[in-house]
Amino acid sequence: MRRSSSLITAMAFGYAFLYAPIVLLMVYSFNASREVSVWGGFSTKWYAELLDNDAYLNAAWLSLKIAATSATGALVLGTLAALVLVRFGRFSGRLLFNGLITAPLVMPEVILGLAMLLLFVALEDLIGWPDGRGFTTIAIAHTTIGMAYATVVVRSRLAQMDDSLEEAAMDLGARPAKVFFLITLPVIAPSLVAAWLLAFTLSLDDVVVAQFVSGPGSTTLPIEVFSSVRLGVSPQVNALGTIIVVVVAVIIGLATWLASRKKR
């Protein structure tokens, strides 16, 4: 089909719009000058300062732990939810279940954050758990959000899957659990990896919900970045952003390479 030149121009503009801030961020992370608009020569001093900044390092470690925990929880719960939605057919309460699992996708973060916090406060009042706020409360909140996204990813893969293999195994007398672990799981494995990575990224990126449900001494990386960025220009953040972009690019590159190798 013919593509008009105006369509190509519009696409080029769109991609430039998406990537310009990222490219500029990377360029200015090597700028010796603190002034962003002035090029003061090549320097890696912001990287050195970043690696010396204990507040950032501690926050990054906490964020990684929370992201790994909540992504794993979200993956397990999301896979179960996807199984329910794709394989269970009609059951009473399906409408509510479906509503509850898709609502977090569009719910504004401030509402999620406030709601989670009020729940934790009420629970602590009622049964004494969770004791204070920090790792546990942030991880639970992120698990709930990540679960909704994990469900979307796993659900669409499960829906496309040819279930004749499962039926054959079942006819031969295999128990549902055995069928799931031996047949279903290996087939949907790539989508499980994608779902885990998505939940991991969302957790690592979240500032709003974490701000509501974190306590003293549990500052995550986005909270730390947000508070320093609000005060103005902070070249260390450029360096941090560049590191994140490079890590993400490497992971996506690897995943694409693995996927293309598998197809052959």
Partner: peptide, 16 residues
């Protein structure tokens, strides 16, 4: 791809 990199830092980039 941009969606996978830090949202907060990309918004910060617009500040500069």
């Amino acid at each position: 791809v941009p969606f996978w990199t830090s949202f907060l830092i990309r918004v910060y980039s617009w500040m500069t």
